[in-house]
């Protein structure tokens, strides 16, 4: 039981570390790292949802090969042993989106550094919030 739950606990721990970095750290770069950690924990969670342990044999990748279509037993074998492909597709999309967001954040941080000459959030505070 324990080793099935542990990866989910890791997700939670990573998520909380990310939230901690975002809310407590005063350095722009550390905040960005916090966002990256949060993204990764969510992606890990999605992958874990799709993973499963078959009772016999080990889990296989959900790949349909051209030979497979001729034999219905192969398809059933695939269905009962493969991991769920949908979360993997979601994770791919989510990684790409995360990349775009993080790239934009880094650009913003660089421009802020040009304006203020620092990454320290306590000195970047013209707005009242």
């Amino acid at each position: 039981m324990l080793h099935a739950v542990l990866p989910f606990v890791l997700c939670l721990v990573l998520f909380i570390i990310g939230l901690y970095a975002i809310s407590v750290k005063k350095n722009l770069i550390k905040v960005i790292v916090g966002v990256i950690i949060i993204h990764n924990s969510v992606n890990l969670f999605l992958v874990l949802i799709g993973y499963r342990v078959p009772a016999t044999g080990s889990a296989i990748a959900p790949i349909i090969t051209p030979q497979m279509g001729r034999d219905a037993m192969d398809v059933r074998e695939l269905l009962s042993h493969s991991v769920d492909p949908v979360p993997q597709a979601l994770v791919l999309t989510s990684i790409v989106i995360g990349l775009a967001v993080v790239a934009l954040m880094v650009v913003m941080a660089l421009r802020l550094h040009q304006k203020y000459g620092t990454f320290d959030l306590t000195e970047i505070s013209k707005l009242k919030g």
Partner: peptide
């Protein structure tokens, strides 16, 4: 500077 700061916060 203000716009960048607001944008970063929002981000």
């Amino acid at each position: 500077s203000e716009e960048l700061e607001a944008s970063f916060k929002y981000l």
